[in-house]
Design a protein around this nucleic acid. Structure first.
Lengths: 194, 194
DNA sequence: CGCCAATCTTGCCAGCGGCAAGTTAGCACG
DNA sequence: CGTGCTAACTTGCCGCTGGCAAGATTGGCG
């Protein structure tokens, strides 16, 4: 066992993502992750400073991943929504900490940058959709979303949240990623562009 | 100071709701709540057994409150959606624990009953809407939701979640309850009934 | 070869959740 | 009345966690 782990930062993030996905943010201890990786309980501190630092880094990584998915989905709203849901199902540990201000260091510049990138991907998609529909966005709308786009975002976010919470499975509405993605497409089709 | 507090169970739930709303489920300690109420750290144990028991009771209370709001909103989808969002804004502490299976005792009968009531209110609203639109629901749909109703639920849930996470405020889309309720109505109007 | 900075360790502290055992108070029944 | 029973609460302990201070190890660079 090398004194220098060599890749502790990345491995810690991966272990944290997995643990958060399985037991939730409050069910994870840094000490446990450290034990898993064969280092002592203070090793993480050097890379992240703090437990909050780990969560913050995880959230930032999540925003980067999400921005990538949204960009790859292109301008189609249905695709973007499905990609959003798919992202949450693929990275439940990241998703679980991305919208929890109380778990995160709000002043972290890396987090702020990643979040901004994701927001821009979201707004860009909305703008593209609006152009396609011939709608003129109000000039004030710098980073704001028009109501229709907000609805699409809300629906994707809500569907992902409910699915991860097991609320859909409990109502017999599918549990696997593919079932849920199909469900997302089926319901998002009832959005009325405007 | 009376040896018997007299109303510890209810007071604890109220204090827990407030604390969860302010600092999130993981930022709350039973000991802290107990101190606040002037009892020792093991007093809550008698009423709830466990920290998980407190959270479970809080979630159950939340489902009862939500079921009441949904029933009061009637059959109109827009109203039901607005009521859902309003509930989350009025009871953020409850909402924060209601969709977190890992924080809750899944076998608790009180929770199960309350959850069922809320689900029934949701399904009843969807059925009423379908009748109004002349749609025939498939006979299999006992507790399942048709895609359009699922979209409405997802949108309301997502909007509430994003608002509570501060994601909408960060994009300049309103922060007060009234602003957010108006935003909910404005965006839910872009649902296309089917 | 020697030094330095990054990385990781040892050892400590307070706070938390959970359990066991004891204490107090309201209440029902004689 | 008072006697006993039970619900409500307390005291005291344990292991675990997160956080800090101080020290050890290592790889790399001059």
């Amino acid at each position: 066992m090398a004194y220098h782990h060599g890749n502790l930062r990345e491995d810690l993030l991966a272990a944290a993502a997995k643990a958060v996905a399985e037991r939730g943010p409050s069910g994870v201890s840094l000490r446990e992750l450290a034990r898993e990786l064969g280092v002592t309980h203070t090793a993480p501190r050097h890379h992240f400073g703090d437990k909050r630092g780990v969560i913050t880094a995880l959230a930032a990584q999540g925003y980067r991943l999400l921005a990538g998915r949204l960009a790859a989905a292109g301008d189609d709203f249905l695709e973007a929504g499905a990609a959003y849901v798919r992202f949450a199902l693929d990275h439940p540990g990241h998703f679980a900490v991305m919208f929890r201000p109380e778990l995160v260091d709000a002043d972290d510049p890396e987090l702020a940058a990643a979040r901004t990138r994701a927001r821009q991907a979201l707004v860009a998609g909305a703008a593209a959709q609006a152009r396609g529909a011939g709608t003129v966005l109000p000039p004030t709308a710098g980073a704001t979303l028009p109501p229709y786009a907000l609805l699409a975002w809300s629906a994707a976010h809500g569907l992902a949240s409910l699915a991860l919470a097991g609320a859909l499975g409990a109502m017999g509405m599918g549990t696997t990623k593919d079932e849920l993605t199909a469900l997302a497409r089926a319901s998002l089709q009832h959005l009325r562009p405007a």
